[in-house]
């Protein structure tokens, strides 16, 4: 196991290297640069000023030199400065990534207590109205465009019912109670979709388990149905559910752009999106790289967890 884990960690190194090359390549291939975007709607920069700025930002160097300089600094933990705010990128990332993680974790967390029982019940009462209702609602959950659902949520819960604030962000470290009230709506918007996925997943893995031999064996031994389901089947069925939720979490790190934009949530997705618009290269590069490393790390952890929970899987 240990060898396997170490091996997997070593494998991450080339992946992260490739990721860094890819993101650097993408970013520098983007049309236009920060000088254009800072010029804004008006006011052209004359060529000398442009040249001076390019020199200042290091944009005048050949691309591989720029990459080498950047990568060298990143290895020393220096992500450079935002070309727009001129503040250290690491400071910006440290402000934004926790906000997104907070949202994503709570969103997924909210979905589990709804989705797992729903999926289980749907599987147990297969082909009954309960099952159909669960299936249809979860299919609707994954069929609605996110931004539309979010706006409908705001109109319902904030405007008409007046239960929750419509948008905004308060750090949980400043005021946990208040922070949670702001969190509910965006987390709900994430949770709804996640719940839909998880319900479907739980249902199908439950069905898988129910038909396994050990269930028949247990039945023939006269164990009560309830005990079989809750003690054995559900536990096994939850393995893929839990692991896939972990992977979902990784995916959500860059997948909440739309919700962050609607709910004025100062997360990393919104930050990277805005940085792309502004061509703020250091922020895009560092943001994607850090998120990418988080993604591969989560994937690795999930993998290890999966093997740990499910020893049948070989350590090839």
């Amino acid at each position: 196991m240990l060898v396997y884990v170490l091996n997997r960690i070593l494998q991450l190194i080339p992946v992260v290297f490739v990721l860094s090359v890819l993101v650097f390549g993408f970013v520098h291939a983007l049309p236009g640069d920060v000088i254009d975007s800072l010029a804004g709607d008006e006011a052209a920069e004359d060529p000398e000023v442009r040249a001076a700025l390019e020199k200042e930002f290091g944009l005048d160097q050949p691309i591989y030199v720029q990459y080498a300089v950047w990568a060298g600094k990143v290895l020393q933990g220096d992500f450079g400065k935002s070309l727009v705010t001129r503040r250290p990128v690491s400071v910006e990332l440290l402000e934004r990534i926790p906000a997104t993680v907070y949202l994503a974790v709570v969103g997924i967390g909210l979905s589990m207590p709804i989705a797992v029982p729903l999926g289980t019940i749907a599987a147990i009462r297969r082909n009954t109205p309960t099952d159909y209702a669960a299936q249809i609602s979860s299919l609707i959950g994954i069929s609605i465009p996110e931004f539309w659902f979010a706006i409908l949520c705001i109109m319902l819960f904030s405007l008409h019912l007046g239960w929750l604030p419509s948008s905004g962000y308060v750090s949980p470290l400043d005021d946990l109670g208040l922070s949670l009230t702001y969190l509910v709506l965006p987390a709900l918007a994430i949770g709804f979709r996640q719940a839909a996925y998880t319900t479907r997943l739980t249902r199908s893995s439950m069905l898988d388990e129910v038909h396994k031999e050990y269930v028949d064996t247990a039945r023939s031994l006269g164990l009560p149905e309830r005990k079989i389901i809750y003690k054995y089947t559900l536990r096994n069925a939850l393995i893929p559910t839990v692991t896939i939720s972990g992977l979902q979490l990784a995916n959500l790190l860059g997948g909440t752009v739309v919700l962050e934009s609607i709910f004025s949530w100062p997360g990393i997705g919104l930050t990277i999106y805005q940085a792309i618009q502004l061509r703020d290269f250091p922020v895009i590069q560092a943001g994607v790289l850090v998120l990418g490393v988080m993604v591969v790390t989560i994937n690795l952890l999930v993998d290890i967890l999966y093997r740990f929970l499910n020893p049948r899987v070989g350590l090839s």
């Binding site: 992946v15 290297f17 490739v18 990721l19 890819l22 752009v257």
Partner: peptide
């Protein structure tokens, strides 16, 4: 596969955002 893994490490919509913005040129 490292190339593919590198692409897969772009979380969520970010890869789409980058490519679509890029292709605008």
């Amino acid at each position: 596969m490292r190339f593919v893994d590198g692409l897969l490490a772009f979380p969520g919509l970010l890869l789409y955002l980058l490519i679509v913005t890029l292709s605008r040129e």
